[in-house]
């Protein structure tokens, strides 16, 4: 793919002689919403940590916009984890402003005067976009799980990351809140033209949000040494019609109820 924003080229993750991921080759296009599903222990989170830069691949390379990715988290990639994504000692507003403060005040990581008011303004706008306008001065411990995840998303989006990574972001939420969060995520994805990679173990969520669904699992299994074969991408489904629909119905608020699925490629190696 020529317009690939993120490319993984024959990437392996090995711990000693335990192989977690093997032969992962992927191209992720700008503006796509990629859901990654797979059984527990199939290396979904390992793949996300690779893209995030928390871990380096043991073989292969990862390119972001054609340049090799540093094995360290950076501001070009935003992230929302299932838990612990927000800072418990900062209010909602301070949590959201933190990204701006780091950028503009390298020494104190705090802004004052006019710059502070500008940052405050931008943070409030971002918090309004995720529906937290009424909670600016609350601490995370005073909020529900859903509100904390909204905050984590706002916190990440204020840095305008090239790539937004979601690691089971709605896994700890109850079904009603989860549906609200799906609507919000779809809306933000469209409004901000985001590129999203989301790990989930909820298949329905993967299909209702994603424009592309990757399934990770082991292709081969050695019963005497189950750790010797790692997982790869066994299904790569492009929900192409849904992507067009999404572009056409950008004004529509609700997520698609019945996406049509086209299977483009199968067993990509």
């Amino acid at each position: 793919m020529a317009d690939a924003m993120l490319s993984l080229k024959n990437v392996w993750v090995e711990y000693g002689d335990k192989v977690v991921l093997e032969r992962i080759s992927l191209d992720i296009a700008e503006g796509s919403f990629v859901s990654i599903i797979g059984p527990s222990g199939a290396g979904k989170s390992s793949l996300l940590r690779l893209i995030l830069g928390q871990e380096a691949p043991s073989r292969g390379e990862i390119l972001l916009d054609g340049r090799p990715l540093a094995a360290e988290c950076g501001p070009d990639r935003g992230v929302v984890f299932q838990r612990y994504s927000v800072f418990p000692h900062m209010t909602v507003l301070a949590n959201t402003m933190f990204g701006l403060e780091c950028e503009k005040a390298p020494l104190t990581a705090r802004l004052f005067g006019r710059q502070r008011r500008a940052a405050r303004e931008r943070a409030s706008e971002m918090l309004a976009a995720v529906g937290l306008s009424d909670s600016l001065d609350l601490y995370p411990a005073q909020m529900s799980g859903g509100m904390q995840q909204r905050l984590a998303i706002a916190q990440a989006l204020i840095k305008q990351p090239r790539l937004l990574l979601l690691d089971e972001p709605f896994g700890a939420l109850d079904p009603g809140i989860r549906a609200d969060m799906h609507v919000l995520t779809t809306r933000l994805w469209r409004e901000f033209g985001l590129t999203v990679v989301m790990v989930t173990h909820d298949i329905k969520e993967a299909f209702s949000l994603g424009t592309r669904v990757l399934t990770l699992d082991k292709r081969r299994h050695d019963p005497h040494a189950p750790h010797r074969y790692g997982a790869g991408v066994i299904y790569d489904l492009s929900l192409s019609r849904k992507a067009e629909q999404a572009a056409a119905e950008a004004a529509l608020e609700s997520p698609q109820s019945a996406p049509s699925i086209t299977i483009d490629t199968k067993g990509n190696t």
Partner: peptide
């Protein structure tokens, strides 16, 4: 990790 992705 979150702080690093926020540019800290």
């Amino acid at each position: 990790a979150k702080a690093l992705t926020l540019g800290a």
